[in-house]
Design a protein around this nucleic acid. Structure first.
Lengths: 355, 355
DNA sequence: ATTAATTATGTGTGCGGGCACACTTTTTTT
DNA sequence: AAAAAAAGTGTGCCCGCACACATAATTAAT
């Protein structure tokens, strides 16, 4: 049963009294067509509301698009960095028949040289597009410089590189996320408490992001005139190793017994929750990212809020951006801040399902 | 430059030493293939990891799928019900070249007969699939009974119809959403306050949903032993008209001056916020849905939390479900609860952009 | 004016698969 | 054992579009 006849190039040709070849020339601006016919064709296209069939076009063109992705290697499927990868794979499967081929490369989070190594592999391949999680700012800058020189469009996820010509940045508004963390943490502690901004860094250079986080977090308290009621401490531990963290925390908590809330600036809030549970401390925790351990501690009550930056969505969208560029020639918006989902025990299930 | 050669039916044919016709018969289980050759073909398919090209298949089949949608008419683009529509249109555009055609029908939110009228139109068209927002429970039940009789798959959005064979329900977990509302409202009021569950209903029958909402909301307070600290009132106003609502609210607040928080069970929290601002009342508000007026009042501070059930996403996903059914023959999960996004002033911008 | 060089236009093939049909081989029927 | 039916296999055309190539109509060059 035919319901809506689709308009094809043939229909337009018949209507305009020319051959399909001419239609083709007009559509693709190949020239070699007389002004009168060109006009006629354009009219016909408008009149019939013709839109080229994307499937047929893709099939006929038969070209392939190679997308290389470069992100940290996830030590386990539960790890944060397995999530963008999952999103990327999902989107890749969706678009594979459009000729989109995705090849994933990974670097060691604690080894800049592995990053450089992978970038060289990618540059050699001369892909049509790149998706990059630029955790090593300096090395990443060098990499994207080269990409720009080779005219390879790239999409940044998770973190941005300022002043560069990326196709798009898809990730959180870092400062805002910390501001929200401030609001959330404040909502679960009593007045006149001390709170702690807890950084755990191991190796790589993300000082600028940490700065923006701290700034955003403190901003909430200054803007809402809570500065004299709430005292904010900062503790930076140069490790994510459980033992070291526990040791440093013990030291700190003994010196600062009034701490009633902690804002953990990476995805390892569960470590701190663990510490609190172990030592029966009633301290509220706000952290980032829905990794499995955080979900556990959210359910146990050791973590109060998790701010999620939908890493899976970031992966999906990054691929979509390049797909649209290749297939539709659409240039996306440069900066696309991902929603900062506020996760509590009561809605965590929904996010597990979808993100 | 060929990077990864795609495996076609021809490749498989060559590898298995048969013609493409035979491959085709094996793939589609059309029979008329000798067991030996069938085996050979299956081996070849596995060995070469052959996946039929979806674009070519769709093009060759050339069939059309009509999806009819039936949802309340949105009086303005700002209205809640324009958002699922937007999502549906977005997805429809994406899949149009796959032969997916979407026709939208609307009914008057306050007129059951308009609903029935539209259902009849749809039934006559005998579409391949239906997307339904079943706000009139009784009439909707009759409608889906007929759909089931005509073997037309349907997806429900926004509200579910129990005990029916829908392809899927895509919408919120209503009870849970109210539980969350309880938690959120509780987090912004002082101890020993009175709070109000405010229903505004005009005409149609959604009593069951309202019951579940009230139950979920109260559950939070009982489960967390807040019953003696917080007194929960319920007020149901049979109108959404500003004047009436204001009048009823005035009456109620005069009688119950201790109210410090309101949970508005529909998308019109902005009305109540308006009332509070006008009368300089310091009463916290939690409500549903990111309609434009709510966003305004979120920013003004008159609304503290909005729980959003991503209506645009609901529309998108509903179309996707049918697309997958038609094109991939995938049956989706029956119940798909949409994430209940928690919106505050600080993250509202992100949701406006994406949802 | 005649040929060469352009420019304008039409035709045909292939992308990867689906399906109708033709043809061959085997099995069943009488 | 011959005819009819069924099973097994291959070929060709079509889906809608892009692009190479062939052909026709102009224009420029000699």
């Amino acid at each position: 049963m035919e319901r809506t006849k689709k308009i094809t190039i043939q229909d337009v040709a018949k209507y305009a009294n020319v051959s399909v070849g001419t239609i083709d020339r007009v559509i693709h601006n190949r020239g070699k067509v007389s002004p009168e016919k060109k006009q006629k064709v354009e009219d016909a296209i408008k009149k019939l509301n013709f839109n080229p069939n994307l499937l047929a076009r893709t099939l006929a063109l038969g070209n392939q698009f190679l997308i290389c992705t470069l992100s940290p290697l996830a030590p386990s499927p539960k790890h944060y960095w397995s999530m963008p990868k999952k999103g990327i794979d999902q989107a890749a499967a969706m678009y594979k028949d459009f000729g989109i081929v995705v090849e994933s490369y990974f670097y060691n989070l604690f080894d800049e040289s592995s990053f450089v190594e992978q970038t060289n592999k990618i540059l050699e391949l001369n892909p049509n597009g790149v998706i990059l999680a630029p955790l090593f700012l300096q090395e990443s800058t060098l990499f994207v410089d080269k990409l720009e020189k080779q005219n390879i469009p790239y999409v940044l996820i998770d973190a941005d590189i300022p002043d560069h010509e990326s196709l798009a940045y898809i990730g959180p508004d870092v400062k805002r996320s910390a501001y929200i963390a401030g609001k959330l943490l404040n909502s679960v502690i009593k007045e006149n408490s001390d709170i702690l901004i807890l950084n755990m860094v191991k190796g790589f250079e993300n000082a600028s992001a940490l700065n923006r986080i701290e700034k955003g977090f403190r901003e909430y308290f200054t803007e809402n005139r809570l500065k004299n009621k709430i005292r904010i401490h900062t503790l930076t531990i140069n490790s994510t190793d459980k033992e070291t963290v526990f040791r440093e925390l013990t030291k700190f908590y003994i010196k600062n017994p009034l701490i009633k809330g902690v804002f953990v600036t990476n995805s390892k809030a569960y470590l701190i929750s663990d510490f609190h549970l172990l030592h029966e401390l009633d301290i509220r925790v706000v952290g980032y990212d829905l990794v499995e351990e955080n979900i556990e501690h959210l359910n146990k009550g050791g973590i109060d809020y998790i701010i999620s930056q939908s890493p899976l969505q970031q992966g999906v969208r990054a691929v979509q951006m390049l797909f649209e560029l290749f297939i539709y020639k659409n240039e996306p918006k440069k900066v696309q801040h991902i929603p900062l989902d506020i996760i509590i025990r009561e809605n965590v299930d929904f996010y597990i399902q979808f993100h």
